[in-house]
């Protein structure tokens, strides 16, 4: 009885924060990646709910992965920081994550390989699927007015840190002149409206929903750094890549095919959205669609890494030649 608080606190912290953390790092795949000649390869992937996940589901639905010889099992993840430990422990074969989390993990020594590109933002700033938003009646029209205030982001130590820092620097302020507060996307609009936070960085479809509630957009964080900035990526462990080159190739094929299809016919993708996710047809019509390239955009990574070092998220840059295989 006397040590309950200690055990309780330790268990709570450990259970909540090391979920999926396994005891062998680099145990890699589950053996399902071997031998693509006799039947499709089964690969388990988890990605952030929303556009990243819809991409994969669309690819599954349209049969692109099947054609490439992959049976893809896609599930929703709760963000880059939790999905990477799952990958490392062998619960997943592929992790869909934002590039910043992957770069941090890689710089800390985790043996990861980027095999394909995840989401990128549109080349047109107006179609950027991210937005810096404030209440409709707020006097704030520019990020420079947010100095010293609270800004909501859905996760910390993420690409949000980078793009916001960049926007602040562009406005003449220091990269850390706002107070970042972590609030999940579904709760963010309400928090902005009520004034708990002065502004927030949202992504679709939450942007369109927030616009309908009267919030206004005062910035395009992703496009500001670079139009067409790559945000997401697909990673596998080094061991898995070495042991299953066929699986890697097959997956890359599927991703490229899906990316090309969406680029060619975005309307078809838009119409498929209500089925794939929790989006009403009206919302599906208005949301801004991401860009998917299939292959990793080195320029985006270099840009992001530079800032990560500057903003002290990592100490040294990661060797992209080592990291990127697709």
């Amino acid at each position: 009885m006397t040590t309950w608080p200690r055990i309780g606190a330790a268990m709570a912290a450990a259970a909540l924060l090391i979920s999926g953390c396994g005891s062998d790092s680099g145990s890699g795949g589950s053996g399902s990646g071997g031998g693509g000649d006799d039947g499709p390869i089964t690969l388990r992937v988890a990605d952030t709910n929303g556009a990243p996940l819809y991409f994969l589901q669309y690819g599954i639905q349209e049969g692109f992965f099947e054609d490439a010889g992959v049976t893809l099992e896609a599930t929703a993840s709760s963000g880059g920081a939790t999905v990477i430990p799952q990958l490392v422990s062998g619960d997943l074969d592929i992790a869909g994550s934002n590039v910043v989390s992957v770069l941090i993990a890689s710089s800390q020594g985790l043996p990861l390989k980027m095999v394909a590109a995840g989401t990128a933002t549109s080349e047109e700033p107006e179609q950027d699927f991210s937005a810096l938003m404030v209440p409709g009646d707020s006097p704030i029209a520019d990020i420079s007015q947010l100095e010293g205030q609270k800004v909501a982001v859905n996760t910390l130590r993420n690409v949000n840190d980078i793009v916001l820092g960049n926007m602040l620097e562009d406005a003449g302020l220091s990269f850390d002149s706002v107070d970042l507060v972590e609030i999940p996307f579904p709760d963010m609009a309400a928090a902005i409206e009520s004034g708990d936070v002065a502004a927030g960085v949202l992504i679709e479809p939450f942007i369109t929903v927030a616009e309908q509630r009267g919030l206004k957009i005062i910035g395009r964080p992703y496009s500001d750094l670079k139009p067409g900035l790559q945000i997401g990526t697909y990673v596998m462990t080094e061991q898995f890549v070495n042991e299953n080159p066929d699986a890697v190739e097959a997956f890359q094929e599927g991703v490229q095919a899906t990316a090309d299809a969406i680029a060619e016919d975005p309307e078809a993708f838009r119409q498929a959205l209500p089925e794939l996710g929790d989006i009403s047809p009206e919302l599906a019509e208005k949301v801004r669609i991401n860009l998917w390239r299939g292959e990793t955009d080195r320029e985006s990574l270099e840009l992001i890494q530079e800032l990560m070092v500057e903003y002290e998220l990592i100490e040294d840059e990661v060797d992209l030649d080592e990291l990127v295989v697709g």
């Binding site: 090391i18 880059g80 920081a81 989390s101 941090i104 993990a105 800390q108 910390l156 130590r157 998220l313």
Partner: peptide
């Protein structure tokens, strides 16, 4: 603790 986890 959470931040540390995020930053690996």
């Amino acid at each position: 603790v959470q931040l540390a986890q995020r930053g690996f």
